[in-house]
């Protein structure tokens, strides 16, 4: 599992690996939003938590089809499947690698982007906490979606159609944490629910992903 993780991370950091691409996409979304809704700081303050979450979610989605697609194309996925490593562990390692290369940079960068959107000062720690609690779930669910569409040519669009409805609860609770904090309400209940969702997804999704991979590799 460590070897798979190290391999994926190395591939992501090397040239053409796409590391940082999700971050750049996140930045562009955040920059484009004020052009769309106007530069009034009050409006931006109001919608900032939602925009930040939506941006993180889309940036996460953008890199999902890389999880298995390249390995599928050059045949290394079949090699990994025949190795002693269970497919469930493989899926978990893949999800972890995706989170480390996509989710974690987003969490780190989010406060800076919050500044651009005039996020309420009280919301900063909660935004980071919510992203930290939510993005692993996004990666785990996304890995399942990627496994489901691995054998399909041009599966990128289908992948987003399948995965986005699954992201509804995470997005909902995640955005609620930051916006409740900004309004001065107690943000802990949605944060707890969000963490529960993520833990459930991390625990269950590798099994579903491995099931889908077995079908694709049959």
């Amino acid at each position: 599992m460590k070897a798979v993780l190290a391999r994926d991370l190395t591939l992501a950091f090397r040239a053409g690996g796409g590391f940082g691409l999700a971050l750049a996409f996140f930045l562009i979304v955040v920059i484009l939003v004020p052009f769309g809704v106007g530069p009034e700081t009050d409006t931006l303050r109001l919608i900032a938590p939602g925009i930040l979450w939506l941006g993180a979610l889309l940036a996460c989605l953008l890199s999902l089809d890389r999880i298995f697609q390249l390995d599928w194309e050059d045949g290394s996925l079949e090699l990994l499947a025949t190795s002693a490593l269970p497919l469930e562990t493989l899926a978990l390692a893949k999800a972890l690698a995706h989170w480390l290369t996509t989710g974690l940079p987003l969490v780190v960068a989010a406060p800076a982007f919050g500044l651009l959107l005039n996020l309420d000062p009280a919301a900063y720690p909660w935004l980071v906490a919510a992203l930290l609690a939510g993005t692993p779930g996004l990666s785990a669910i996304g890995t399942f979606g990627a496994a489901l569409t691995v054998g399909i040519r041009r599966g990128g669009l289908l992948l987003s159609l399948l995965v986005l409805p699954l992201y509804v609860p995470t997005l909902l609770f995640g955005a609620m944490v930051a916006s409740r904090a900004a309004e001065g309400l107690d943000p802990l209940p949605p944060l707890a629910l969000l963490a529960g969702l993520t833990l459930g997804a991390v625990a269950a999704m590798p099994f579903a992903a491995a099931g889908a991979l077995r079908i694709a590799l049959r």
Binding site: F144, L148, L162, P165, L166, V168, P169, L172, F173, M176, P190, L193, L197, M205, A208, G211, A212, I215, A216
Partner: peptide
């Protein structure tokens, strides 16, 4: 058939979660 079955199972769980998550929202 297999892939849609997996999708249906996972989708059912998430549909139920979404339904009750929306009540908070």
């Amino acid at each position: 058939a297999d892939l849609t079955t997996v999708l249906c199972l996972v989708g059912s769980v998430f549909a139920v979660i979404s339904r009750y998550a929306l009540d908070f929202w």
